[in-house]
């Protein structure tokens, strides 16, 4: 569900088809460009990019230090800049601070690092409540934040884009950077989840 629509899906689909054909006819858009853009966001650009940044920061203290002081150029070292991630700020979750990213005015999000935002991030519910009731919002995601921890909400209202550096979970000390990458979820990099260690198979009943 892409949220409450007042028009029928088939009406909108038809309208979009008509507009697309009109814009192609008038030479305003090129179908090859449209296909390339869709393909890029469906198959190439996504949260796996952000996960690489996080895993690198976990294994390389020097990289982490640079990432927190100059997100943009440090992320560029991994070849991961791009549209809607031109000016990056990375904020670190610690035992004392939990960070949460929102865009109350629209849905600004680091596209090149995390892909296009999920429906919940774009929803009126999240945009309205993340600032006034962040702890309630986090509970809705199953995250209870202790009263001893400071919750910092970042409203990305301008041209800077935010990425949360989640805490590295205990029990991952021997894991390789590649294995760590696979643990990092999109929501953990927005601040609505923590990174979990998978239960070893022998412990699953």
């Amino acid at each position: 569900m892409s949220s409450h629509s007042q028009h029928s899906e088939s009406d909108i689909a038809l309208r979009v088809k008509a507009i697309e054909s009109l814009l192609v006819e008038k030479g305003i858009i090129d179908p090859a460009t449209i296909d390339m853009i869709i393909d890029a966001y469906e198959h190439r650009i996504g949260p796996h990019n952000g996960a690489r940044i996080v895993a690198r920061a976990w294994v390389d203290p020097n990289f982490k230090q640079r990432l927190l002081t100059d997100g943009t150029s440090t992320i560029a070292e991994l070849g991961l800049a791009g549209f809607s991630s031109e000016h990056m700020i990375v904020v670190e979750n610690t035992p004392e601070v939990h960070n949460l990213i929102v865009c109350t005015l629209c849905s600004c999000y680091p596209w090149a690092i995390l892909g296009l935002p999920p429906t919940w991030y774009k929803s009126f519910a999240y945009r309205s409540r993340a600032v006034i009731d962040p702890r309630g919002v986090l509970r809705e995601f199953g995250l209870e934040i202790s009263n001893h921890v400071e919750v910092r909400v970042w409203d990305s209202n301008a041209d800077l884009r935010y990425l949360v550096l989640p805490e590295r979970p205990l029990g991952t000390e021997t894991m390789t950077e590649a294995a760590l990458t696979s643990l990092v979820t999109r929501n953990a990099m927005i601040g609505t989840a923590k990174v979990q260690v998978p239960t070893p198979p022998e412990l699953v009943a």
């Binding site: 109350t104 519910a125 999240y126 309205s128 409540r129 006034i132």
Partner: peptide
């Protein structure tokens, strides 16, 4: 929308397509 009330539950979707 910042601070507005009553806009419902957050629509969390598992394995959401792009």
């Amino acid at each position: 929308l910042g601070g507005m009330h009553n806009l419902g539950a957050i629509p969390i979707e598992v394995n959401e397509p792009v």
